[in-house]
Design a protein around this nucleic acid. Structure first.
Lengths: 220, 220
DNA sequence: ATAACGTATTTTGTATGCAATATAAACCCG
DNA sequence: CGGGTTTATATTGCATACAAAATACGTTAT
């Protein structure tokens, strides 16, 4: 009786993960055609699991299927982002409201710590580290809702917005605003004030929206 | 130059649609194992497109993959529904808020008509027709938001709740409440009052939640 | 030179075949 | 007769092979 069974994930799942990574990192840029033979050779798998993976990514919305012409990495347009952000706002707001009630006190303390780190990164102008801690805080709050479906839904939307990669184009002003909103967020969380936290989170996404649209304006 | 090209959907897409129908109708009940050979013979296709379709449904969450053991129709638990409903509330609320601003006046008139039909079905105790018109109204309002991502997100969540099929267990009382809330909904829409419509929609889903949980209690 | 046509090549879509894993059945031994 | 082991069968996973469609290319005619 051996319970140390090695359950390696099916190939198509591994391939899907790898593709997701390639798309997320920008190595496969939006609009790129996915050539099956090429990818097969590259990954050392046959076309069957590769195609199954591509179908999965298609239902996730990461790639777009063109009948008889294969798949391309889906392009996230400005309109898409404009559609997604209000939804994220609602959902993050809901997540916060639930988190304010459900989270353990020590979890909230942990968020305060990470928040302090984030502020330091802001002061030191460490952009990458700032975004990473920022993302982590949002993730922890959402997870603090205790609602896994909510987490999944937000993640899938968030992935698309992130893929548009505007974030780097933050102005000093909007950055400061974002940080001060985060301060309010953590305070509301510590006070376990669901209504307040919800309002702040919704406002926070609104700030993000103007930032993104602003940077889109400038880059046109 | 012939523009009347017949673009028949790829097989795996057709198969996915058919499977979705079978699952939605309950013909493939939750927990059922999907036997590939059986389904292939049934549908007259080979295993390749069938498997691709199954992978798609898996990422949609309609089926669950069990490595080396195929796929089963995913079961929607009470916990799942408890998780999903608050999300639906937020999203339908958002949809209503946007619809109150974006919808054309004649579209609102159409909703009023359908609403009147729904009330008639309620009075005549025509359950099936009631649910159908009810669903249609919610769908039209959501679509009236003009936010396709929102529509898709709500639909995918809604499908899961519907699959749990509790709805038939409505009490006379909760049914009456639902109808009166619908009356308020249409009124708020005609008044183009986004805040009010949002509140009503959120409240409406809350009513649904208690109805469902109530019927779950009784059926245990 | 360029536009249009037809052919060659590439690429995707589907079917089939083989290997690996899981399930079911038969068998043996206590 | 029952528990456990072996053997057989069925089912999934992956790879390959063939068919159909799309793209690329070259040729011809204007």
């Amino acid at each position: 009786m051996n319970s140390n069974v090695i359950v390696r994930a099916p190939l198509h799942v591994q391939v899907a993960e790898r593709l997701r990574l390639l798309i997320d990192s920008g190595e496969l840029a939006p609009g790129t055609r996915l050539n099956e033979n090429e990818l097969c050779q590259n990954m050392g798998v046959s076309r069957t699991p590769l195609r199954e993976a591509i179908r999965s990514l298609a239902t996730e919305g990461l790639v777009e299927l063109q009948p008889n012409r294969g798949a391309i990495v889906s392009v996230v347009s400005q309109d898409d982002v404009t559609e997604i952000l209000p939804i994220m706002a609602s959902l993050e707001g809901l997540g916060g409201r639930l988190a304010a009630v459900h989270m353990q006190t020590d979890q909230i303390k942990q968020i305060r710590q990470i928040h302090n780190q984030m502020v330091t990164h802001y002061q030191n102008n460490e952009v990458t580290e700032y975004f990473e801690t920022n993302r982590l805080i949002h993730e922890l709050i959402t997870e603090g809702s205790g609602n896994q479906t909510l987490v999944d839904t937000i993640n899938s939307l968030s992935a698309k917005v992130r893929r548009a990669r505007f974030s780097a184009q933050m102005t000093r002003e909007s950055w400061a605003k974002a940080v001060s909103e985060h301060e309010e967020m953590v305070t509301a969380l510590e006070a376990r004030d669901p209504d307040r936290l919800e309002v702040i989170l919704i406002q926070h996404v609104e700030t993000k929206r103007t930032t993104i649209l602003g940077s889109l304006q400038r880059s046109e």
